[in-house]
Amino acid sequence: MTEEQKLELNPLIIRIDCVSCLPSQPVPIQELQRLCTTFYCRYRFHKTLVHRTEERPHGTHVYFEDINVICLGAIHPSDLREYLEGPPMVVEVHDRDRKSDESSCRPTLFGEDPLDSHGNIQSFISSKEMEENPFQSQNKTWDSHGVTRVSFTDILLGHKYLNLVVPIQHLPLRTWAKAQGVDFLGSHFGHIMFVFSAKELFLLHSLLKDITLINAKALELDSYPTGTVQQILPAFKMRVNIQHQEHLDILTGFHLLDGNIHLFVLEGLADGGLRQL
C-alpha cells in the first residue's frame, strides 16, 4: 500500500501464529483425528464478517500462521474507540467438533415418519418450515470449544504492534449456556473438577484439608483445629441470612469413587476459594 492508502484505509492485521501445549489426555491425538473434524479457530472483530482460519491437523502444537486484514478506516472513529475500550475480542478454538454421522438418519418406510399421517402436508406448513426440518434439527449435536480473549486497548495508548500470548479456557458449561440463550456471563461463580487415581491417598487427604480450611474461614470456624472442623461441617446448618449471601466464599459440590478413580466436582466464587484451590 502507498502511504495515502494506509492513512485512508488504516489496515489492522490480525495474525494467529500458533496454538500450543494442547492436551493429549484424556483423549489421545489419534482419537481426536478419528472422531473430530480438523482444527480451526474463528472470531469476529467488531461488526465485520466472522473470520475462520484454515483447518489444520490435530496435535499438541498447531501452527496456523493465519492472517486477516481489517480496514479500520471503514469504521466510524467513535464506534472503533468504543469497541477497543470494550470487552476483549473472543476467539473460538475448535478442536473438539465431532464428525457428523450421516448414517444416524436412517431411511424410513411410509407410515413410520411422524409427518406421514398428514396426506396433504404442504397445505398448512409455511415455506420456512419446509426449509427447516424440525425432526432433522433435533439430531444436531452441540460441540464445546475453547475460548480465548484478546484485548486491543493498548492500541489506544499508541502501540502499533502487539505480540500477545493468551490462555485458552475450556468452559463447556458457559459455552453451552450461550448456545442455549442463557446468560451466565454476569455470574461470578465458577467450577473445577479433580480426577485422580484411587491410590493417591495423600492427594485425597490434601484436597479435603484444603476444602475444609477454605470453608472454615468463610464460616468463621477457622479458630478450631482442622479435625474438629471436619466433624462440625457435615452437621453445620446455615442460617437463612447466610444462605442468601452471594459473596460467601464457600466450596460446594460432590465426590464420587468407583474403586479406580476419585472425581471431585466443586463450585464456588471464581476469584475466591476456588482460585486458591
Score class of each variant (00 low, 15 high):
Leu256Thr: 02
Arg81Leu: 12
Val147Met: 12
Glu54Leu: 06
Arg106Ser: 05
His61Met: 15
Ala177Gln: 06
Pro134Trp: 03
Phe39Glu: 00
Glu92Tyr: 04
Ser223Thr: 09
His262Pro: 11
Gly259Lys: 10
Ser187Gly: 10
Pro23Ala: 02
His191Thr: 04
Gln122Ser: 15
Glu55Asp: 14
Gln180His: 15
Phe202Ala: 01
Cys71Phe: 07
Phe39Asn: 01
Ala179Tyr: 11
Glu129Thr: 14
Ile13Pro: 00
His255Phe: 15
Val166Ser: 12
Phe236Gln: 03
Leu207Ile: 13
Leu115His: 01
Ser78Gly: 08
His94Gln: 06
Ser117Phe: 10
Leu248Cys: 13
Lys160Ile: 14
Asn133Asp: 15
Glu246Cys: 13
Phe196Glu: 15
Tyr40Met: 04
Leu32Trp: 02
Phe264Thr: 05
Lys6Thr: 15
Ser187Leu: 00
Asp116His: 13
Leu109Lys: 06
Phe254Thr: 03
Ile125Gln: 12
Phe196Met: 13
His170Leu: 11
Gly190Cys: 01
His46Met: 12
Phe236Pro: 02
Glu54Asn: 15
Glu267Asn: 09
Leu156Glu: 00
Trp176Val: 04
Arg239His: 05
Thr38Gln: 09
Asp143Pro: 02
Asn10Cys: 11
His94Lys: 04
Ser137Asn: 11
Arg52Glu: 11
Val265Phe: 08
Thr148Leu: 07
His51Asn: 10
Ser151Thr: 11
Thr226His: 06
Glu112His: 09
Glu200Trp: 04
Ile29Tyr: 02
Ile214Ser: 00
Glu132Thr: 13
Leu49Ser: 14
Phe184Pro: 07
Gly227Tyr: 01
Leu208Ile: 09
Ser206Thr: 01
Pro11His: 02
Pro28Asp: 10
Val62Pro: 01
Arg81Tyr: 10
Thr212Ala: 12
Cys105Asn: 07
Phe135Asp: 08
Val165Leu: 12
Asp113Val: 00
Gly59Cys: 08
Glu54Ser: 15
Thr38Val: 09
Tyr83Leu: 10
Val195Met: 07
Ala177Lys: 15
Arg149Asn: 05
Ala235His: 12
Ser187Lys: 12
Gly158Phe: 04
Asn68Arg: 13
Ile168Phe: 01
Leu263Pro: 04
Val62Tyr: 00
His76Met: 08
Leu208Arg: 13
Lys217Ala: 10
Ala218Phe: 04
Gln33Ala: 15
Leu266Arg: 02
Val27Pro: 00
Lys209Trp: 02
Ser126Arg: 03
Arg106Val: 06
Ser197Cys: 08
Gln245Lys: 14
Leu219Phe: 05
Glu246Pro: 03
